[in-house]
Structure formats: structure tokens, C-alpha cells
């Protein structure tokens, strides 16, 4: 008889070989998903010719041209004119002049990035805040028509949000909400709040009522019990929900393109516009994308423990 067949095996402790196989697969998958990110990151440091070179260049002389182009607007000038300007005052002026251009002013990327931060985090905070209160209410109180209301809340996610783009556009125009922070925050909150209510309700349901009852008997009001006893135990759920909401609000493109143009435009519709300014400036696009990725990566790493627990939480519900 085969020797390995006779060996006892354990469900909880995997064998050495299956560990190796699993590890290799995970690493391979990570590599495949990382390649586009790495490529974007690298392209941000290439010169424009390097970025469109064929075959693609993996090794190149890094330059900050892409980042300079991202943050500035430039105009093309004759070499004679550039010479007449005298020596460049800064390193980035020097970079730009090599391509026969002069800096005419800052680009609007900084403002767009700021808009993204305000709208993304603002709507996430609002959606999670409202979602937490609603989830607690639905979980603990006898709400009339509870199931219907919950279904109604869920039903707002049953169609792609863009399906209501035109009505929302018309509505926003009437209300003067187009191209405002408030308008975008409200819109993303409205989309996210249903997700937040459903996710968070699951978390509240898992917290035994006894905790609040114990606190209420010990002299705390219902609200104090909620703040002191329920909220700390919802931390995981709130973190997980916040990440999901932020990812949606941060990455949202269609509404941002339709409803914002000037003051409240977020980064996603802005970044592709860079291509139009002075040729196919891929390094600038890549630089913008890299900077755009940073907050969400940072936020996710910060909350990754909670996120992991949050996703697996409630998997074994009675």
C-alpha cells in the first residue's frame, strides 16, 4: 500500500506541500495584480519618449518630468525666446525648458485632488455616521414596516447609479447643486448609505443586547450605552464599511464627469484631461494616478486588520 495514503491527515494543519503550493499561488496572483500598479508607478518617472518606447522599457533614467508636468501648465516657445530668458531659476524650469517650453502657471491638479479628498472623506463620514445610527435603530427597535424599509433601502442599489444620471443632473441644476462640494457629498452619501446600513446592521445584530441591558441597569442612558458599549464593539464593522464607502466615492467617475466641471471637479475626471494638454503626456497621467492611489492605499493599510476581520465576521452566523 502507498505509504502516504496511510498517513493520518489533519483538517486544521495543512501539510508542508500544500502550504508551498498555496504560497506560490498567492504570490503569483499578487504579482499579476501588482504589475499594472508597478507599471503606472514606473511610468510616472519616465520621460515622455521613454513612456511610449517600443519595446517597453523596464530600465530607464528616472526623471521628475511627469510630476512637473502634472502640477504645471506650460507653453511651447522658440529656442531663441527661451535663450533670451536667461538661466532657469529652479530645477523644474530647467526640466521644462529642455522640451522648448516655459511654465505659465500651476495646473489645477492640486485643487482637484483637494476636491477628491473633501468629497471622498466627507461622504464616507456621512454615510457611515447615518448608516451606524440607522443600523442600530433597525437592529434594536421595533420599527414599523422594518423589512419593507430595509428592502427599499437595498433596492436603491439594484440599478447602476448612472441609470439615474439624467434625472439627477436636471434636479441638481434646479437646486444649484451641480459642481458643488455639497452636491457631490450628498450624492455619494446617498449611494453609499444603503450599503452602510446593510453592512452595519449585520454587525449590530451580532452584538448581544445584554451589553446594553447591563449598561442600562448600571445607570447609563440608552444613548450612553450605545456610545460606551455598542460603538466600541462596532469598530471593526465601521472600519470595513468606511473602506468600502471610501473606495466607491474616491473612484467614482461617471457622476463626477457629468456633474462637475470647474470648482468641485474631482481627480478621476481630471486625470484623463491631462492627455489633451500638449500631446500624449503619459508620465503626467501616471504621476497623477500614482498620487491618486496613495490615500486609499494608506487608508486600507491603516485599517487592514479591521478590514480582514470585518469581511470574515459573521461568516458563521447561527
Amino acid at each position: 500500500m502507498n505509504k502516504s495514503r496511510n498517513k493520518a491527515f489533519s483538517i486544521s494543519e495543512s501539510s508542508r506541500r500544500s502550504k508551498v503550493v498555496a504560497g506560490t499561488l498567492v504570490i503569483l496572483y499578487a504579482l499579476v495584480t501588482m504589475i499594472p500598479l508597478v507599471w503606472i508607478f514606473l511610468t510616472g518617472f519616465k520621460s515622455p519618449p521613454d513612456s511610449i518606447a517600443y519595446p517597453p522599457k523596464v530600465f530607464f533614467t528616472p526623471t521628475l518630468e511627469g510630476y512637473v508636468n502634472l502640477f504645471t501648465t506650460r507653453s511651447r516657445q522658440t529656442p531663441e525666446y527661451i535663450k533670451s530668458l536667461g538661466p532657469p531659476k529652479t530645477w523644474y524650469e530647467e526640466l521644462v525648458r529642455k522640451r522648448n517650453m516655459v511654465i505659465t502657471g500651476p495646473s489645477r491638479f492640486k485643487d482637484r485632488y483637494m476636491n477628491s479628498l473633501v468629497i471622498g472623506f466627507g461622504s464616507t463620514f456621512l454615510a457611515v455616521f447615518l448608516g451606524t445610527l440607522a443600523a442600530y435603530g433597525f437592529s434594536r427597535f421595533r420599527v414599523p414596516l422594518k423589512d419593507d424599509l430595509l428592502f427599499f433601502i437595498l433596492s436603491t442599489r439594484m440599478m447602476p447609479p448612472v441609470a439615474v444620471a439624467i434625472p439627477i443632473y436636471l434636479m441638481y441644476r434646479q437646486l444649484g447643486l451641480t459642481d458643488t462640494w455639497l452636491g457631490m457629498i450628498l450624492l455619494y452619501t446617498a449611494v453609499n448609505v444603503s450599503l452602510a446600513v446593510w453592512l452595519l446592521k449585520g454587525f449590530v445584530d451580532e452584538i448581544p443586547r445584554e451589553y446594553e441591558e447591563a449598561a442600562v441597569i448600571d445607570g447609563y442612558s440608552r444613548f450612553q450605552a450605545f456610545v460606551k458599549v455598542v460603538l466600541p464593539q462596532m469598530r471593526t464593522g465601521i472600519a470595513a464599511t468606511a473602506i468600502f464607502c471610501l473606495i466607491f466615492a474616491w473612484n467614482e467617475y461617471a457622476f463626477a464627469l457629468l456633474l462637475t466641471s470647474g470648482t468641485a471637479q474631482t481627480a478621476p475626471p481630471f486625470i484623463p484631461q491631462i492627455i489633451g494638454e500638449g500631446g500624449l503626456d503619459w508620465p503626467a497621467v501616471a504621476a497623477g494616478t500614482t498620487l491618486f492611489l496613495i490615500p486609499i492605499v494608506f487608508f486600507t493599510i491603516l485599517l487592514r486588520k479591521q478590514l480582514l476581520r470585518g469581511i470574515t465576521f459573521g461568516a458563521l452566523r447561527k
Binding site: E210, Y211, E213, A214, V216, I217, G219, P232
Partner: peptide, 20 residues
């Protein structure tokens, strides 16, 4: 009266110790 106003102590079956 509300539980807080009754001045009683309650011990739950599952202890209800605050995990945090």
C-alpha cells in the same frame, strides 16, 4: 421606572462583560 432608576444589579447568563 427605567432600569437605571431602580437601583438593582443584574447578572446575565452570558456574563455580558464589556469585551473592550
Amino acid at each position: 421606572l427605567r432600569p437605571a432608576q431602580r437601583d438593582i444589579a443584574f447578572v446575565f447568563q452570558l456574563f455580558a462583560l464589556y469585551p473592550h
